[in-house]
Design a protein around this nucleic acid. Structure first.
Lengths: 127, 127
DNA sequence: ATGAGTGCAAAGTGTTTGCAACTAT
DNA sequence: ATAGTTGCAAACACTTTGCACTCAT
């Protein structure tokens, strides 16, 4: 473990999660960590399963720590109106996963999926 | 309706769907439709609800005609292994939608969501 | 010592925009 | 006539890569 990697992890742990690579990079500017390194590090942490990533609208990929120790498991909802990432109950896709498996042979990975819709505020505003 | 717009719609209708903007652009090269126009057109058709789009890994957004006339409704599964877009039963998220609404106030839009996982072939290969 | 990790700069995608010429209505 | 559409080229945002240097072990 090197300094830059520790720094990336700290950034993800410290701030509210779901950061883009560039946001992480910005947080680490003081620490002189290069953007390319941030990308490479996130990529590797992702492959190692330490962090999880997701492709959102606008083209930016967002990263966050995978499965926090104490029941931090959650799904991701992306509000198509305001862009927020909503944290949703982890078990919401259980039924769907079973259904897809038998119907199409598709093995769903709920943690990797992003559910699109309207967050509570925007839904209320939209009526 | 102008010629370029008709051409974009025809490209989406004619070929197997789920094309990237650039793929559409390639198909229309002969018709002298500029890439920028393709992007603008897809954007507009998307806003108009005629086509639906989805952000996949690799950063490319994929477009396809929304709700085909005869029961063409479907959900999208993205295989994280081979990158294919799998077509999944439209009702698979019904339970999830209800659950999220009551649990988090999140109003899920199933057609907009992409489910990530392994397609049948890759799941079989992975064991 | 040695192999992995890093900074840098440059290139690659995918997408958007300002503007002048054009076209459907 | 006029508002909307297109082509073009240039700009943007996000991400990846080759290479030489540095660092952890």
């Amino acid at each position: 473990m090197t300094a830059p990697r520790r720094a990336v992890l700290e950034a993800l742990a410290g701030r509210s999660d779901h950061l883009t690579a560039d946001e992480v990079s910005l947080l680490l500017e003081r620490a002189d960590v290069h953007r390319a390194t941030v990308y490479r590090t996130l990529d590797m942490l992702s492959a190692a399963g330490v962090v999880s990533h997701r492709h959102t609208a606008g083209g930016a990929t967002r990263y966050h720590l995978a499965a926090a120790p104490e029941g931090g498991e959650h799904l991701h909802g992306h509000c198509r109106e305001c862009g927020t990432v909503a944290v949703l109950p982890a078990d919401a896709l259980a039924g769907t996963a079973a259904r897809l498996r038998e119907a199409a042979g598709f093995r769903l990975e709920p943690e990797q999926s992003t559910l699109v819709g309207l967050c509570a505020e925007c839904a209320a505003r939209a009526g």
